[in-house]
Design a protein around this nucleic acid. Structure first.
Lengths: 212, 212
DNA sequence: TTATAAAGTAAGAGGCCTCTTACTTATGGT
DNA sequence: ACCATAAGTAAGAGGCCTCTTACTTTATAA
């Protein structure tokens, strides 16, 4: 009979996989992409699976994105932006010691990616390279400027040396994320907070070792 | 008549290695797996592609392995064994300083995986867990004993602390490998030697920072 | 109220994969 | 020389994927 009652008219209901209201599929796809990525990584990402989780047909996503990679590119741009903000905030929140600040940026990277599922692997994925737009590039430049400045404050005035330091730092951070999502660090995945803590500690050691 | 000439030409024009002599397919599959893994990583690994490269039908591999994962499991066991040997040799070859020796083990991991394509991701792949045999377990135990001993010599007597140190070290090493194979460190992949050098330098810094 | 455009669906083509079945071919022991 | 057997092949079932086409539903503005 009357079933208009179950029209919830939700604006931004829980990030869960409830079927989005008509017209809200585009943003729901992006949101669910983060969930799927955090569960399976890039390997398990598929538009069909996304559609299934949102309770729409597998053709529906193609009303909003011309192809799979176009969706992933939007996700990558948003991930780059989020990450930049998280890292900036962490640098601000950390104490004044430049080493602490840099270590906090690595920890923030790990915490954020562990939580959201999209890190360097998505942002710089090979197949997305042709689609990479100004958003990602700008977020990348902003982030790099911030990090180089922090490295300079930590005593690495030479930019090429600073770049190597940052490389070490984010290789370490990325390593923590990937090995954690593959259950290599422990029997099951650590919480984002726990893996971030380990990464921050390691980053601090790495930075101290470099200063000498 | 002309047939034999055709066959030779066809085999030689195959995109991959030379077609193995009859009866040599099993070992050829294993060898080619390392090549394929080093080119594409686990994501691009497929039995069909292997068969194509070796110029045999896609059914042929199933004469030698009951299923894809059984082949991968053999590759993983061999990779674990090779890696253990490489790392042991590097520890021997390095100078007497325990920090140098530990850093050399991380560098050896990176060099070897960068060259051969099979590292922790293959050895500890989730889907291979049910098939993991005694070989991998033994190689893993031997390696861990060696590393713990090196860590003890480097001043980390407490085994649980030593484990954390080793975790940091191999997370860093694994990070270098994965980010290099995804062309993140530079525009194109570094040579195994170059990426190993960078990793060794980073490992040394990490270890120095921990000792303090 | 109704026309229109946007949003979603059903069905399917075509790709690549794993693995099976039934067949053919080559080799080595007798 | 023969033939049992191991090794390889052709063909295809069945799965999951991306993306297309033609259709239906729904919201909204005239």
């Amino acid at each position: 009979m009357v079933k208009e009652v179950d029209r919830v008219t939700d604006a931004a209901s829980g990030a869960g996989s409830e079927r989005p209201a008509r017209g809200q599929l585009r943003s729901a796809l992006i949101a669910e992409s983060f969930v799927l990525l955090s569960e399976t990584g890039m390997a398990g990402f598929s538009v069909a699976e996304l559609a299934r989780r949102l309770g729409v047909s597998t053709a529906a996503p193609y009303r909003h994105f011309p192809h799979r990679d176009a969706l992933l590119a939007v996700v990558a741009a948003q991930a780059a932006d989020e990450l930049t903000r998280s890292i900036e905030a962490a640098a601000q929140a950390a104490g004044p010691d430049p080493i602490d600040r840099l270590a906090a940026t690595a920890g923030a990277y790990v915490r954020h990616v562990s939580d959201r599922g999209a890190g360097f692997d998505v942002i710089f994925a090979r197949e997305l390279r042709p689609l990479r737009d100004a958003d990602v590039a700008r977020a990348g430049r902003d982030l790099m400027a911030l990090l180089l400045d922090l490295a300079r404050q930590a005593g690495h005035a030479d930019p090429s040396q600073a770049l190597l330091l940052l490389e070490q730092l984010f290789v370490l951070a990325h390593g923590y994320v990937t090995l954690d999502t593959e259950d290599f660090l422990t029997r099951s995945r650590l919480s984002p907070e726990d893996v971030a803590t380990r990464a921050t500690r390691a980053a601090t050691a790495l930075l101290r070792g470099n200063v000498t």
